[in-house]
Each structure stands twice: as C-alpha cells, then as structure tokens.
Amino acid sequence: MDVDRIVALVTAAGIELTDRRRNAKDDGWSLSFANGATVELGDDGSARAAGKGARTVARLLDMPTAPRST
C-alpha cells in the first residue's frame, strides 16, 4: 500500500489528512489525521497506526494498531 492509497482510503471515510511529511530518517512517510491517528509508512511497505483514532484508521486500512502505550 502506498502513501496516496492510504490517504485516499482514510479521507474517504471523512477523516481529514492533517499532515504528510517524510519521516526523520527519510525512509518513509509520517501521516496525521484529524481524528488524532498517525500512520507511519515505510518505503519498504511496512505500516503502523498509532495515537487517538488509530483503531478506526487501522480498520479502514485492514492493518494492526500499535500498542496503546505508544
């Protein structure tokens, strides 16, 4: 799944994209959404959702969430 695909699927559900940038290591994308969820997407295709609203975003993307403590 690429970054544009993730953004399209989440925003179609009424959850706005609020930030999109290359991560600090420049090996992937860091996305933020209006419900408080963040998605870290590696250039290798790995993806992880965290933050408030992560469960909803993970459900939309059919992916696991990060542990709640993160």
Binding site: T18, G36, G51
Partner: peptide, 14 residues
C-alpha cells in the same frame, strides 16, 4: 486555513 488541532484537550494530539 486547513485543519489543525486545538492546543487544549480535548484535542486530537496527546
């Protein structure tokens, strides 16, 4: 001009 989070809770940002 586009969505940012409130500086106070309840906010999307922890």
């Amino acid at each position: 001009v586009n969505t940012m989070q409130p500086p106070y809770q309840p906010s999307g940002n922890n």
